[in-house]
Amino acid sequence: MAKTAKKATKPATKQPAKKAAAKKAAPKKAAAKKATGKTGSGLSTPVTPSAELASVVGNKAMPRTSIIKKIWDYIKEHDLQDKQNRRMINADSKLKPVFDGKNQISMFELAKVVNKHVQ
């Protein structure tokens, strides 16, 4: 029997895959910011403090968040947090009218008390 010669086959060469033209997405533009000085709504609406509250935070109209921050700055500056229960705030002569005559309130009541003293 005659031997049949095997054809030498070349291993299949892989052609480099054509990369799809990847289009880069245009960067998204940031949302336009509101112009400063506009009045917001809710917590960012400037409110005017009462005379009692103005003695602590000043008499300029400002957002409630700023009023609370200034009260906390005053509390920390004058060391008015209770030593045993840090959740309680002791009143001094300026804060007692704001706290409706109470000697001490909870920090959770602070926003409620401030709400009574703003317009």
Rank of each mutant, 00 (worst) to 15 (best):
D82C: 03
A32R: 07
L53W: 11
Q104N: 05
T39R: 15
D73G: 09
T9F: 11
T45Q: 13
H117R: 00
A8E: 15
D100V: 02
L80K: 04
A30D: 06
A17G: 10
K38I: 11
L80R: 00
N115I: 03
S106C: 04
V113W: 03
S50R: 04
K34W: 15
M88E: 04
A25I: 04
K24S: 04
K38D: 15
K70H: 06
Q104Y: 03
P97A: 02
K14H: 12
R64I: 09
Q84D: 12
G101V: 01
A25F: 03
I68Y: 10
S66I: 08
H117Q: 05
T4C: 11
R87H: 07
L43F: 14
K33D: 07
A17W: 07
M88C: 01
A20H: 09
A25T: 01
K24L: 00
E52S: 13
L43M: 14
K38T: 14
A2W: 13
M88R: 06
V47A: 12
K18D: 10
N90H: 06
M88L: 11
A5G: 06
K23P: 03
L110T: 03
K6I: 12
A22V: 03
K7V: 13
S66R: 12
Q104D: 01
K19M: 02
H78P: 05
K18L: 10
I71M: 07
N90Y: 04
K14R: 13
E77S: 05
N90C: 08
D73K: 08
V114W: 01
K69L: 08
A51H: 07
R87Y: 09
V98E: 02
P49D: 12
S41N: 13
A26I: 02
G37Y: 09
L110P: 03
K70E: 06
K33F: 05
P46L: 08
E109K: 05
S106V: 00
A54D: 08
A26T: 05
K7L: 14
D100I: 03
M62H: 01
A30E: 13
A54W: 09
Y74I: 04
M62Y: 06
T13P: 11
A31V: 14
I71E: 03
P11A: 15
N90L: 10
S41H: 15
A12D: 15
H117E: 07
I75Y: 00
S93L: 08
K60R: 08
I75H: 03
V118E: 08
